[in-house]
């Protein structure tokens, strides 16, 4: 009695088709069907941000999106944020600033921070904290995460100016 649906979406700039049940979340589809396990499940009800992805330019929690809703959408996951060469400045700064301990929250934070910096290249500390309030980290107390995001913003601004 399976009622699987064929879905086609652009995931990390690649067109992907998959079949899923309507009750499967986008998070489940990414992880179990497409084996993109970078998005993490921390709560499965929108409270932790570990599953964050960017959908049509908007930050969302993939555990609160149905896989079928992705039909025709463009989705960027942590896997898609990594450039062809080297690392994204956010990734680089998270490493340099030791902004991760266990690292389970890291993909969600980097995706969320990317969505922030895409909109606001020069956020204040308070703006970073507000934007990231939907992402829980239990290891770091956020101190080094906030610094890494501010550092990455500075790098991106400098790169842009140089270009």
């Amino acid at each position: 009695m399976s009622n699987k649906v064929l879905v086609t979406a652009t995931i990390n700039d690649e067109e992907r088709s998959f079949v899923c049940e309507p009750r499967q979340s986008l998070l489940e589809v990414l992880r179990d069907v497409l084996h993109l396990t970078g998005a993490k499940e921390g709560c499965n009800n929108g409270n932790c941000g570990a599953c964050a992805v960017i959908m049509n330019g908007v930050l969302v929690n993939s555990c609160l999106v149905l896989g079928v809703e992705a039909n025709g959408a463009a989705i960027t996951t942590i896997e898609g944020i990594t450039p062809k060469e080297g690392l994204h400045p956010l990734q680089q700064k998270f490493l340099e600033d030791a902004a991760l301990q266990c690292g389970i929250c890291t993909p969600g934070f980097i995706v969320a921070a990317k969505a922030l910096l895409d909109k606001n290249p020069n956020p204040t500390e308070q703006e970073v904290r507000y934007w990231l309030a939907g992402n829980l980290c239990r290891c770091t107390g956020y101190d080094k995460i906030v610094r890494a995001v501010l550092d990455a913003a500075a790098t991106l601004r400098a790169e842009k100016q140089a270009a």
């Binding site: 993109l36 396990t37 970078g38 896997e79 998270f94 991760l100």
Partner: peptide, 13 residues
């Protein structure tokens, strides 16, 4: 670190 910031690190789940 690189595995963890790129989503490649393999956690239990």
């Amino acid at each position: 670190g690189v595995d963890k910031v790129t989503g490649r690190a393999q956690y239990g789940a």
